[in-house]
Amino acid sequence: MFYQTSIKTVCVAAVTFGLIAYAMLGGYFAREIVIEIALLAMLAIALDFLAGYGGMISLCHGAIYGVGAYIFGATTALSGTDPWLAALAAIAGTALFGWIVGAITANVGGIFFIMATLAFGQMAYVIVFESRALGGDDGLAGVGRFDLSAVGVNLNDSLQFALLCVAGMLLAYMVAATVLRSSFGRTLSGIHANEDRMQALGLSVRTHKANAFAISGAIAGAAGMLAAQHTQYISPEYLVWTLSGEALVVVILGGIGTLAGPVVGAALLVTLEHFIGGYTDRWHMFIGAILIVAVMAGRRGLFGEIEHRLSRRSETKTEAGIHA
């Protein structure tokens, strides 16, 4: 069950302010890192919403991110659609994609669910890769960006675009948190805890799971839509299945089922990547080793561990207070 605890608020606020400060004080390269963290955090929030609270461990979120990037990219680059309309299409399209995957896989559990989502993601990848109209493996250039000049924001400026991405991350967090605190979110946690009982209570588990997948897909698609605007170029690389794995790594590293954990995890992973990447190009070996150690050491993750320790301390305090 999700609670917006003060630890979560402090953590998310700290990461947000850290990113804003780094983007404002640092140069172009710092802003690239901030954008990378914000977009990865959005994708990981989408995944944690589904995996941590709905128990659906999806390996197609990388593909959904890519579908979002492609719907936005292809409509702006090929037909010159207004970016705002294209963004709406990207979010609606990825929500629909998520809903379909969720509806089909609703009866499938455990490892079959993971494999099925992996296969759906690959299907999207193959379709994009082989589609000549979408540029195939060459990708598409000339993707547009939002026009915010009416409110005095120039998104072709790297700082302002970085701040837009941070805002996107914060919005994604707030949307996920709001949904999780609603009755819909409580029901989702109920399905995660005991699917049979929720079914017996008269709930349509399939519809509920599909809707949750749609919400998660829309958040992941929004992240992909921003990524397409960032690079202004899209290629099938956006849909590759290892991206889904990387998002799952972020969720695990930060703490699954905490929602704030993915934000911390994304910041940690991207920072580590650039730090280690400065010494060696064998970055993937480290990410693999970190993942193995993180999973084998326990499943709480970084944020989960902090939250666990702090809440245990406050519990002992309360207990001591009672005894006193």
């Binding site: 461990i57 390996l59 490892i111 993971i114 794995g245 799952l248 790594v249 695990i252 993937h284 070996m285 990410i287 693999g288 080793a289 970190i290 993942l291 193995i292 999973v295 084998m296």
Partner: peptide, 10 residues
């Protein structure tokens, strides 16, 4: 899945 996924990378 995660641990063996990590093994692939390594």
């Amino acid at each position: 899945v995660l641990v063996t996924f990590g093994l692939i990378f390594v």
